[in-house]
Amino acid sequence: MNYLQVVQVLRRTPGGSNFDQREQTSSRAAKPFITSHLMRPLLLLDIDDVFCLNRPYGGYDVAQKEWPSDLLSLLWHPPALDVLEPLVFEFNPQIVVTSSWLRLMLLSSIEALFRASGALWLANGLHPEGEALQASGKTRLDAVDGWLARHHHGEPYVILDDTLSGTGLAGSKHDRAGRLVMCRVDIGLLPTHAERIRWALGTTLR
């Protein structure tokens, strides 16, 4: 996928939406599943202040028609990916995007962005229903609870979010159950978070 193709797939236009639907169908049909998706744990994943610190680029830069030449190489925070990537390979979770980036682009555009930026392990892990869009006037907790009510089948899960956009999550039942990791704004995911993520992904619900 070259630069112009990436820009095309990331634009939320009528033509882009049709392209997104075709891309979503073809790419997911080709994904290998190591185990049944009903048995794999769930990773409900925010983007901003988890593994994108908006220094120098973030979601609004991605949504622009023209990109700086170094956007794909500088978009993600490498130390956060260094924490997350081995956990994804260890547990093979189904990834559900909870980010406000879903207001700027389609899920299949985010998948294309993961692929174009070299984070294939995120793209390949996306859940078939991997979009938990937060509705206007609702909290992130509302979005997470709504998605889980529709799609959760008892799998272990963990929620990775941040203290600014993760509204309602602190003190929730997910937090009390040890299934929430809240990253600090401008800091992102840290090695100290790995133990809780590993426990949540590997521990069945009681």
Rank of each mutant, 00 (worst) to 15 (best):
D82R: 15
A119T: 14
W67N: 02
L113R: 05
S69D: 15
S69F: 05
N54Q: 13
L122I: 07
W76K: 02
A116F: 08
L104T: 04
V83T: 09
G125H: 11
R55L: 15
L106F: 12
R55Y: 10
L122N: 03
G59P: 04
R115P: 00
N92L: 12
N124Q: 12
G59L: 01
A123W: 05
G58N: 04
A116P: 03
P79R: 07
E129W: 13
S69W: 08
L113I: 08
M105Q: 10
L81P: 00
A63Q: 15
A63I: 07
L72A: 14
M105W: 04
S100I: 00
E85C: 12
A80Y: 02
W76G: 06
S117R: 10
G118Y: 04
N124S: 15
V97H: 01
Y60G: 01
S73N: 09
L126D: 09
S69I: 11
S108Y: 03
W76T: 09
A112G: 05
N92G: 01
F91I: 00
M105H: 06
H127D: 14
V96Q: 07
S69V: 11
L81S: 03
A119C: 15
W121R: 07
S73C: 05
I95C: 01
S99Q: 03
F91T: 09
L107T: 11
V97Q: 03
V88D: 02
L102P: 03
P56A: 10
D70T: 08
E90C: 07
S100A: 15
V88H: 00
E111A: 11
E85H: 14
A123C: 10
A119S: 14
S108Q: 06
L87W: 08
W76Q: 05
S73V: 09
K65I: 10
L81F: 02
V97M: 11
P128R: 11
L122Q: 05
R103Q: 12
Q94N: 15
W67A: 00
L120W: 14
N124D: 15
